[in-house]
Design a binder for these strands. Structure first.
Lengths: 211, 211
DNA sequence: TTTTTTATACCTATAGTTAGGTATTTTTAA
DNA sequence: TTAAAAATACCTAACTATAGGTATAAAAAA
């Protein structure tokens, strides 16, 4: 990295976001080189053969889940700094990004000055957030307190079927289980989310993007 | 408009989307003048004293609901063409925009070529969509068939309390109603959304952005 | 290999919801 | 002013969910 430019990557499926970011970074082209990708697969392929100092990673990509992609990036290239860049404002989503190895999170309403400040902080090894993301992270909430309820594979399955309005009997038939087994899974879900009924459970799950 | 440039406005709370759109339109500066705003209020103020041929209107703005803003824009300046520009992919949202006077809808993953084509079509008085938006609009679905279920004020109230996991008895107490009245409203909601239970109802309502 | 977690299944009792209507009053729209 | 819509309330019957547990087997993690 002596005297070389810093390599910034942008991974976002919106051409206008990519153009916008590049435009905002244009005054800094003496310092940064930007490369852009509209899907995760292309970026992973590039990263396998090139060094990237920092990547702006959208959460929702057509071919990948940003959180899983983040893990993959850190596996392939542990030194690459990952900053989440999204419109997603749920604290639980942001936390999942951080848990997956991201060094920060920016909302897409970040101002040009903030953007540059966040890049600098990240390159200095600091965790960094855009202002509004900081506010969200600093805000305790019920959903926050129950953030990212950890549910098992079977529980997820049950949850998805409940979201389709299916009853215990129907779910039991579809999954080849006893209705009593389904009831136990449901009870466990209510306990994990600390809610009293299926209505509340589903709304919490939507809130946490589990559905 | 003889020999004058066409005035395009961009209303979006993301600086990088504004920069991106401007950048994509840069090759066409001989034809278009772009002005941009990060909130609805500023744009409405501008529109009251200036003529705008076409506006790209985000759905979610900090100070306004894009659908309501669309109505206001068409009231102040009926000749101004409104194109929705959002990440919202629900058909019901798109329809609400059209019902509010918009002449089309673009998703933010629109390509540069498509963007220019959509502008031209809109200026010619045609309804226009970006390709993915066209696909969504053309796709019949259960939710689509039940699009924007029209519910009354009281039903909305009941729906919101159901989404908080409240039971008929609790809702009756809070709204000073008979539990039997609440049950009737619930039954009516199930019929309007054509669903069988509250779980399904809530998921449909979330889908249609009623919650 | 052992421990922990997940999955499965069961029990009694109680609470809550949905289905199928009908009927009257109040509010809103025409 | 009249008609239509919304809101309110009621009825019987059946269905579904939740609460409070206990217990064993299988799978996964340590």
């Amino acid at each position: 990295m002596q005297q070389d430019k810093i390599i910034l990557a942008i991974v976002d499926d919106h051409p206008m976001v990519i153009e916008g970011l590049k435009s905002l970074l244009k005054p800094e082209t003496a310092i940064y080189t930007t490369v852009s990708f509209t899907n995760g697969r292309e970026f992973i392929s590039f990263l396998s053969q090139n060094e990237v100092d920092l990547v702006f990673l959208d959460i929702s990509l057509p071919d990948a889940n940003g959180i899983e992609l983040c893990k993959e990036i850190k596996k392939i290239s542990p030194k690459t700094i990952v900053l989440g860049l999204s419109n997603q404002t749920e604290r639980s989503i942001m936390l999942q990004m951080l848990q997956s190895g991201a060094s920060g999170y920016l909302l897409k309403n970040v101002s040009p000055d903030e953007l540059l400040t966040c890049i600098q902080e990240a390159l200095q090894g600091l965790i960094t957030f855009s202002r509004e993301a900081k506010e969200i992270m600093g805000r305790p909430s019920k959903a926050g307190l129950n953030e990212v309820a950890s549910i098992t594979k079977r529980e997820k399955q049950i949850l998805e079927l409940l979201a389709q309005g299916k009853t215990t009997a129907t779910i039991a038939t579809e999954l080849f289980l006893s209705p009593l087994t389904v009831d136990t899974h449901r009870k466990n879900l209510l306990q994990k989310f600390d809610v009293k009924n299926t209505a509340e459970l589903l709304m919490a799950a939507v809130q946490q993007k589990l559905l």
